[in-house]
Amino acid sequence: MREAAFVRQNKEKWIAFEKAITNKLQLHPDRLATYYIQLTNDLSYAQTYYPESKTLAYLNSLASQAHQKIYGNKKESKNRVLSFWKTEFPNFFYQYHKTLLYAFIIFVTASAIGSISALHDASFVRLILGDAYVNETIANIEKGEPTAIYKSGSMVGSFLGITINNIRVAFLAYAFGVITSIGTGYILFSNGIMLGAFMTFFYTKGVLFEASKSVWLHGTIEISVIIIAGCAGLVMGNSILFPGTYSRRVSFMKGAKDGLKIVVSTIPFFIIAGFIEGFITRYANMPVGLALFIIFASLSLILFYYIFYPIYLKRKNATKLYGT
Rank of each mutant, 00 (worst) to 15 (best):
V235N: 05
L25E: 08
E142Y: 12
Y102E: 11
T324P: 09
F252L: 07
V263I: 12
K19V: 07
I116K: 06
Y71A: 13
K24P: 12
A5F: 10
K314M: 12
A318F: 12
G161E: 04
I276S: 01
D258L: 04
A63L: 15
F189I: 00
K257R: 14
M236T: 08
H218E: 15
L82G: 04
K78G: 15
Y174D: 05
L321W: 01
Q26T: 12
E3Q: 00
L217T: 06
A16P: 08
L39T: 05
Y45W: 01
Y71N: 13
E12D: 15
D258Y: 07
F171I: 05
F201D: 08
P51V: 01
T200N: 01
S265Q: 06
L101V: 01
Y36P: 15
Y150E: 03
L129V: 09
R282Y: 00
S265Y: 00
P310N: 05
K205D: 02
T220C: 09
L195R: 04
D42S: 08
K261S: 01
M286R: 02
D121V: 07
I113H: 03
Q38M: 04
E222V: 14
I223R: 00
Y203E: 12
S239L: 04
I280F: 06
H218T: 09
H120T: 12
R31A: 09
I141T: 01
K316G: 05
I21N: 07
I267W: 04
D30G: 13
L119R: 11
F17R: 01
Y35W: 08
I141F: 09
A33R: 14
F189Q: 03
S154H: 03
T99G: 09
L129T: 09
G130A: 08
Y35K: 15
D30F: 08
I272P: 01
N285Q: 11
I105P: 03
S64L: 14
R8Y: 10
Y58E: 03
V134F: 10
A291D: 01
A16R: 08
Y312G: 03
S181R: 10
A5V: 13
N135W: 02
E136S: 12
L56N: 11
A16W: 11
L301S: 08
F202Q: 12
A57Q: 11
A284S: 15
Y50R: 12
P310T: 07
E145T: 11
F252M: 06
I311T: 10
I162Q: 03
N135V: 07
G161P: 00
H218M: 08
A232W: 02
I240D: 01
E145P: 10
A66H: 10
C231S: 13
A256W: 12
G323Y: 02
M236I: 12
Y312A: 04
T245C: 10
K151G: 07
